[in-house]
Design a binder for these strands. Sequence first.
DNA 1: CTATGATATTGATGCTCGTCAATATCGATG
DNA 2: CATCGATATTGACGAGCATCAATATCATAG
Lengths: 117, 117
Amino acid sequence: MDHDIVLAQLAALADPSRFHILQLLARGSVATSCERIEAFENGCCVGDVVAETGLSQPTASHHLKALEKVHLVRREVRGPWTCYFPNPEAIEEVTARLRSELLPSAPRVDAPQGGCC
Amino acid sequence: MDHDIVLAQLAALADPSRFHILQLLARGSVATSCERIEAFENGCCVGDVVAETGLSQPTASHHLKALEKVHLVRREVRGPWTCYFPNPEAIEEVTARLRSELLPSAPRVDAPQGGCC
DNA sequence: CTATGATATTGATGCTCGTCAATATCGATG
DNA sequence: CATCGATATTGACGAGCATCAATATCATAG
């Protein structure tokens, strides 16, 4: 089902470590140690996440892989580095789906003035 | 921290059962068995969720409580029934926070035309 | 007060997941 | 090939959670 991707993305977003990683990528505030990422790209490598978050290297790698699996980040191998980049479209998609599925699309039926209880 | 509420709301949204409950409430498609809910209110009672989802009564009660804890639904006791109503403001808040925290606010620094790699 | 219908709580169970240590893989460089 | 830096994988552990059965609470009608 196409439905599942939204739930998977929400689950990915709900973890504090992963949310933090996405924040770092979104604000482009990572001074990366990767020689193959230009400043304007707002990307980082696994080691950068380790340095910024204090997570162990396997944990950082694990979370980045999870984020890439639901397309919240884009992954690119550049020589010895694995580079990750934010994917704003995915954020837009999640918020759009949340709104379309969980907000009343049509204006509600007119309610009587007096209330009920 | 005010930060935690967003993560808690995302975690609440990420569960299939809870997401389904919110969908039912959002589209106002629950023909409730509660005598004290008017049609225009788009609310339902615990028993309605049991009937619509097939979950056990304790599980439905548990999920509704969890949704209320993060303000995704509003709770109101009406006689023997506990009634739940959608809270669209919370959905708007979550999506707004997602966008403000995970999307680049300022336009990115101008990138060189040629790309890099 | 008693009985009944509606919901909440408790206890238990199985599963998922976040985390790290240890180890393996992989690319680049001599 | 041998080495080194960067990342991925494996294995294990513990915490949290979704779920249900059984039971308790609570409101209302009689």
